[in-house]
Amino acid sequence: MTDVRPGPPMRIPGADAEAAWQILLARIPYARHLGLEVRRHDSGRELHLPYREPLIGNILLPALHGGVLGALVEITARVAAQSADAGGRRPQLLNCDIDYLRSARAQSTFARAEMIRQGRRSGLVRVICRQDDPPVGRVQLLFPGAAGPTRGPR
């Protein structure tokens, strides 16, 4: 299989960051499957994961699956990093490390990203998820072009 990454730089309308997030999010089939949405908040943008029954991981509590929060965190980090990248390059995730502070209930969940470091070859993003109270996630991303393990053959 050919390595399709990195793709051609995407032109992101700089004037409208919310539209940029929408465009980037709409390209991710799994994000569409989960029903992720871009929302505006006071100082920026966040992703909203509306509650649906297939997101449940613990039917007894009930609580969202840890992997669902993983997806919300990872995809928020990806969209934030790509929209912040001057060339609009699609980042490849190097790793993702999430601390779960409490179980996520069967309700809407929101995630905001903070770019800790934005470099030419790599970036570090911290993502905070919240419902009424926040679980916390932290994601490190590696940008394409770096000589990392993600560039190796399958």
Partner: peptide, 24 residues
């Protein structure tokens, strides 16, 4: 499945699907 992929222009699984599989 097509809805578990990473990008409309890529043929890779979304990393978050692997994350869910690992957690389960």
């Amino acid at each position: 499945q097509p809805w578990l992929l990473d990008d409309d222009d890529a043929a890779d699984l979304c990393s978050s699907v692997l994350y869910s599989l690992a957690d389960s």
